[in-house]
């Protein structure tokens, strides 16, 4: 098979992370890539540096980085620059103790709805904790615990929501991509079965009516 069996009809965790890494994020560069025109003649070394030419995103931002003034780049690029010590990542606004607390409260109070977190919150949080832990203002171990609480509250609700699986459709607003990916095999399997049972029952009814 051209595509391994375990990748058919679903995504691997690495692929979900790959998708998330395409999202933009704010960084504080520690380097300057913006060409300085008036000094170009006097400092030839700066003028001869390589220009960035990107083929998947807008390269305007990376070509105009000025040290210590924030700009926005793709997450994968931010993580790469961070790894090289060329920037620090500005944590997203929702990834603070205060915001997470209010999300957790929402999750606990509403049993049938999910808080309006970004669609990639879990992966973003894990990636940033892992690779840019020193860029947070709040202590990372507390943030990590909050994320875990949030995840558990939502997991409980997802598990409870599975009883609503039916043969028609289901609405799952505000569920993140990684959570969808987790429940996909089970939910799709059950709903496919329910559909077949429903169709068989309808057939039987029709058959009985015809006699």
């Amino acid at each position: 098979m051209a595509l391994p069996r375990n990748l058919q009809d679903t995504f691997s965790l690495q692929e979900v992370q790959f998708l998330v890494e395409n999202e933009p994020i704010k960084i504080m560069p520690r380097i300057t890539t913006k060409p300085i025109r008036r000094k170009a003649a006097s400092t030839p070394s700066a003028g001869s540096s390589v220009r960035w030419k990107l083929i998947t995103t807008d390269d305007h931002n990376v070509n105009n980085m000025v040290a210590m003034s924030s700009t926005e780049v793709s997450l994968w690029l931010a993580l790469l620059l961070k790894q090289q010590g060329k920037c620090s990542i500005v944590a997203p606004a929702w990834l603070t103790i205060k915001q997470l607390d209010s999300f957790i409260e929402f999750e606990l109070q509403n049993t049938s709805r999910f808080a309006n977190l970004p669609w990639n919150w879990l992966i973003i949080a894990h990636l940033l904790f892992q690779k840019a832990a020193d860029d947070f203002r709040d202590p990372v171990h507390i943030l990590r615990a909050k994320i875990q609480d949030l995840r558990e509250a939502r997991l409980g609700k997802i598990a409870k929501g599975l009883q609503h699986l039916n043969e028609s459709h289901l609405q799952l607003d505000n569920l993140s991509l990684s959570e969808i990916n987790e429940m996909r095999p089970f939910a799709v399997g059950v709903m496919d079965k329910l559909r077949d049972i429903h169709a068989a029952a309808a057939d039987r009814e029709q058959y009985a009516n015809n006699i």
Binding site: I31, S48, V50, L54
Partner: peptide, 24 residues
């Protein structure tokens, strides 16, 4: 870059562009 052995700052865009190429 190899011929001129430029300063290390020139290698960074190259590194990132290669990473991007692999992603695409």
């Amino acid at each position: 870059v190899l011929e001129q052995t430029l300063d290390r700052s020139a290698k960074l865009p190259l590194l990132c562009m290669e990473a991007e190429l692999e992603r695409l």
